[in-house]
């Protein structure tokens, strides 16, 4: 009892006794520096955004889905591709690219955002070719940019900030590590991100496909098409020309059911003028342009869920992606 009490007092006096300012400051700096270094090492090892590793620590990679606008611009820098595909989820689900390609498809990417990602690719990668996949709703003035996008994308300061966040932020790496330890015995999901930015999508059931169609229709009803926003396409063309990078522009293939929905919507009058305007902008700038919106007009409704052509009513399969690249002649 006496010893315990004595030990407590001794401990308290050690803790409260003043040390020299130099030791205090150096201890402080040392602990914070070590803490930051541990975070950096842990992030490099677990790599929750699959930026630094060549194969993911955990193939589930839960955080990329929610943080594509943060992760993919950093991935494209560490991959240093020769050819970059830019567009929405139709791109990242549709193009299973290899080697010196990078698939920079980002969920619901708008044309405003695409312009900044092109700037980013031109500034930080050796890419000589850019393939831009266009969708009608990319020029929605209601949601010209989405959550997670930063208007400074493409600048050095934004890139440095993002890298520092990827290296120093501790929570994600810890969460992924914990998830990996807990779920290691669970079978891996079929859906996963590849090193080149492609997302392997599993087959969808009939119900899932129907539900997704409903959600697309609902989202499209809120869309307000603004043809003036095609000025961002002109901006993209200007950027590529300035850096002498070859640009390929295509309009994504559409399932007939989606086309029907477009025709029924308030934005229907803009659909053909949109295509014409894109064509005329590209023609004027002497850019390779492909209107592929009609190439899958013969597709049947997805009565049994995903087919080998369509993952759902909006997303075409990698088989079509391969065909598109062949048509564009991108190698």
């Amino acid at each position: 009892m006496h010893i315990n009490r004595w030990t407590k007092w001794q401990l308290l006096s050690i803790l409260t006794s003043e040390t020299s300012p130099k030791i205090f400051a150096l201890f402080f700096v040392g602990v914070i520096f070590s803490f930051l270094m541990v975070n950096v090492c842990f992030n490099l090892y677990v790599d929750p955004y699959f930026i630094f590793r060549t194969s993911p620590f955990d193939e589930r990679l839960p955080d990329i889905n929610l943080q594509q606008r943060f992760a993919k611009p950093l991935q494209v820098i560490t991959r240093q591709p020769r050819i970059v595909l830019i567009g929405s989820s139709r791109v990242y689900r549709g193009f299973d690219v290899k080697d010196d390609f990078y698939n920079m498809g980002i969920s619901s990417m708008t044309l405003v955002e695409a312009s900044s990602y092109v700037k980013h690719v031109l500034n930080f990668t050796p890419a000589r070719k850019i393939v831009l996949g266009l969708d009608f709703w990319m020029i929605d003035e209601v949601e010209a940019t989405k959550e997670g996008w930063d208007k400074k994308t493409g600048t050095i300061s934004y890139t440095l900030k993002s890298f520092s966040r990827a290296l120093l932020r501790g929570n994600e790496a810890f969460r992924v590590f914990k998830g990996f330890i807990h779920n290691n015995h669970h079978p891996l999901t079929e859906e996963k991100w590849s090193y080149t930015g492609f997302f392997h999508t599993s087959k969808r059931s009939k119900n899932e496909v129907e539900e997704m169609l409903l959600s697309y229709v609902k989202a499209f009803q809120k869309t307000q098409i603004q043809l003036e926003m095609l000025s961002y396409l002109e901006d993209i063309i200007r950027q590529c020309k300035a850096k002498e990078v070859e640009l390929y522009v295509y309009i994504s293939p559409l399932h007939p059911n989606i086309k029907e929905e477009y025709k029924k919507s308030k934005n229907a009058p803009y659909f053909d003028p949109w295509k014409d305007k894109v064509a005329s902008i590209c023609k004027k700038a002497n850019i390779s342009f492909y209107d592929l919106s009609n190439i899958l007009d013969n597709s049947a409704p997805l009565e049994n869920g995903s087919t080998d052509i369509w993952l759902d009513y909006s997303h075409f399969s990698p088989k079509i992606g391969k065909e598109i690249l062949q048509r564009l002649g991108v190698k």
Binding site: I14, L15, T16, S17, E18, T19, F24, F27
Partner: peptide, 9 residues
Amino acid sequence: FKQSKLWGI
């Protein structure tokens, strides 16, 4: 404030 271990911790 004192430059002690307790404050540091």
